[in-house]
Design a protein around this nucleic acid. Structure first.
Length: 572
RNA sequence: GCACCCGUAGCUCAGUUGGAUAGAGCGUUGGUUUCCGAAACCAAAGGCCAGAGGUUCGAGUCCUCUCGGGUGCACCA
């Protein structure tokens, strides 16, 4: 399975990187693919660097000698090679760099690719009957960003929301509902009522053993497949919850191709059990059905059925995986799920491996670190939660105040505040490396200055503002005199690196790479239009040239923000 | 007890698959607005990359151990 995405035409700095790699490969008699172009530490040294240490031995000379030799021998169009010690640096002709980067940035498929790969991203996956809290933020935001990025890279992307709508917890919920439920409260605020029931169940469970027994029976009734009162209640809860989730997704601008709860795979569970038996991997242990995984180096066996015959999380995930494979024949299936479930994914992949399902290699757990509060781990039961809507509301509220203060004359301030607030929250999440735990800090999430979503949005809005004031049709790049552009090198390089950043974001499943590439672009952009005034210079040719840069910058920021899921208002 | 993840500036984080003098933001200090938007820009100060060994031309990055934080380890999801 290929993981690299080749753009239709090398764009941005890839255009030069490919040429450099090809020339270097010929000179060193190597495959271009093995040559990794690095970035010189000093920007003044050029756009690309190749340390010559590893090639020196084969060339029978010292690294500095090799670097010097290659610098003298290589002839690459519009690229100048120089040696500094053992480092071979490449500088792109500024004129040519500006042309290539600007023209690629102005095309709709900038930094895209074309591949027929099918990528499934499973993300968000909240549990019915509980509110979405900050803990759901990471999977939702990271998953949605990865999905958009793979789509941009040319994959056929299938987004699946694997709603937690099945399992013994619903037996508990139904049992609690039958004892204490109030239809009136449920209508008024469904999630709050369901949450209250859930919390109460756990509070009273220890003192009243009949509760757990009732819950067990309720789930058995649910799993029996027979239409009954229990099932009706469960379906009602599900519908109410989904409606709540939809509201949050709408604010994030997220849609799914399939909202398939665990229950969707209900009728596939029996066949799955049979399949596991046929594969000869199941065995009984203390009454439960398990798959021993010691042969795969995993000590804990995978439980696929409880002693009282009900299915488990792993059972349903196995059924889901198999069903997806049969339906989509995916090239990759990414599970954007918290790192605390690493063992679960190792186990259930190992089960499939034991069954001879080679396609399990295409499945990948994309783990992320926990969001914790300063007071400790999030806990729905303990009431230690911050609702996702609450976070968004507070961010929007602050954004509203900021807009009111900085730009009171704007029309549709409310819509802009929503975009800024949501953008701040989303970007804050994507700014962190996936695997690291995040301590939730209101001040940080709600900050609009520095390395933040609103900073990127501001840069974008500034470009929009300049273009709006110029109020003219953009001249074609080929009729523009790019020699008039003196500065901007840093900006062009930053923009030119976007294709690589997007590619790597996909390969490493790490949105922080794109986030940082965008910050660099915005920062270089802010410096650019500060130093190079666009309008009112009295030189029309110069204005048009700079306007083109602003247009390319705006398009690039809009592209990147769109991929991350940060809204890009034209004014703010 | 075993396994996995994390430890970089006062704080929050990057660090180009092992390369050149470790970079941003916040905060601190100082500067920039008769000029396309100051949610911005410019500059200064701030580091024994948790600690100790090892691997090699070269280590924040790889290996081993120690310390500190987090997570998981059979009928929850």
């Amino acid at each position: 399975m290929a993981t690299h995405s080749a753009p239709k035409q090398p764009n941005g700095l890839d255009f030069f990187a490919d040429a450099i790699r090809a020339a270097l490969a010929t000179a060193l008699d190597l495959e271009p693919a093995v040559l990794v172009l690095e970035r010189p530490r000093e920007e003044a040294h050029g756009e690309f660097a190749v340390p010559c240490f590893r090639f020196a031995k084969a060339a029978a000379c010292s690294p500095p000698q090799l670097a010097a030799k290659l610098a003298a021998e290589l002839h690459i169009a519009d690229v100048c090679a120089t040696a500094i010690g053992p480092f071979l640096n490449f500088q792109i002709d500024p004129q040519r760099l500006a042309y290539v980067v600007l023209s690629s940035a102005l095309t709709a498929d900038f930094a895209s690719g074309q591949q027929g790969l099918t990528t499934i991203v499973e993300f968000s996956s909240p549990n019915i009957a509980k509110p979405m809290h900050v803990g759901h933020m990471r999977t939702t935001v990271i998953g949605a960003a990865l999905a958009r990025i793979f789509q941009h890279l040319g994959h056929k992307v299938i987004r699946i929301n694997h709603i937690g709508d099945w399992g013994s917890q619903f037996g508990k919920l139904v049992a609690a509902w039958q004892r204490w439920g109030s239809e009136e409260n449920l209508q008024a605020d469904p999630i709050a009522e369901l949450l209250q029931l859930y919390v109460r169940f756990h509070a009273e469970e220890a003192a009243d053993s009949s509760l757990a027994a009732d819950a067990k029976i309720a789930f058995q009734k649910l799993e029996s497949g027979v239409e009954n009162e229990t099932r009706k209640t469960w379906r009602h809860f599900t519908e109410l919850s989904l409606r709540e989730f939809e509201r949050v997704y709408a604010r994030f601008g997220i849609t799914f191709d399939f909202v398939r709860g665990e229950s969707w795979y209900e009728d596939k569970l029996e066949a799955l059990s049979q399949w596991l038996d046929e594969c000869g991997v199941t065995e009984l242990s203390d009454g439960a059905t398990i798959v021993n995984l010691e042969s795969e180096g995993i000590k804990t066996p995978c439980l696929v059925k409880t002693a009282h015959g009900t299915t488990l999380y792993a059972t349903r995930d196995l059924a889901a995986a198999k069903s997806r494979w049969e339906e989509f024949h995916f090239d990759q299936l990414l599970y954007v799920v918290g790192a605390e479930q690493t063992l679960h994914f190792q186990q259930f992949k190992a089960v499939l491996k034991r069954c001879g399902a080679t396609w399990q290699e295409r499945m990948e757990h994309v783990p992320f670190g926990l969001i914790r509060l300063a007071e400790g781990k999030l806990s729905t039961r303990a009431g230690r939660v911050i609702g996702l809507s609450e976070v968004l509301d507070r961010a929007v509220e602050l954004a509203r105040a900021a807009v009111e203060e900085k730009n009171p004359q704007l029309p549709n301030k409310e819509a802009i505040a929503e975009m800024v607030g949501v953008g701040a929250v989303v970007f804050h999440d994507l700014k962190h490396q996936r695997q690291k735990d995040v301590v939730f800090d209101w001040d940080e999430v709600l900050s609009f200055e520095g390395d933040t979503g609103p900073y990127l949005q501001y840069s974008h809005a500034r470009c929009c503002s300049i273009l709006r004031k110029a109020d003219r049709a953009l001249t074609s790049i080929d009729s523009i005199d790019l020699t008039l552009l003196e500065g901007g090198q840093e900006l062009f390089v930053a923009m030119g690196r976007l294709p690589q950043a997007i590619r790597e974001t996909g390969q490493k499943r790490e949105p922080v790479l794109l986030a940082h590439a965008l910050l660099k672009i915005a920062s270089a952009g802010n410096a650019y239009y500060r130093e190079n005034r666009v309008l009112g210079t009295g030189d029309l040719a110069l204005e048009n040239a700079r306007l083109l840069v602003i247009q390319a910058l705006r398009d690039t920021l809009a592209l990147g923000l769109g991929l991350l899921g940060v809204p890009a208002p034209e004014q703010m």
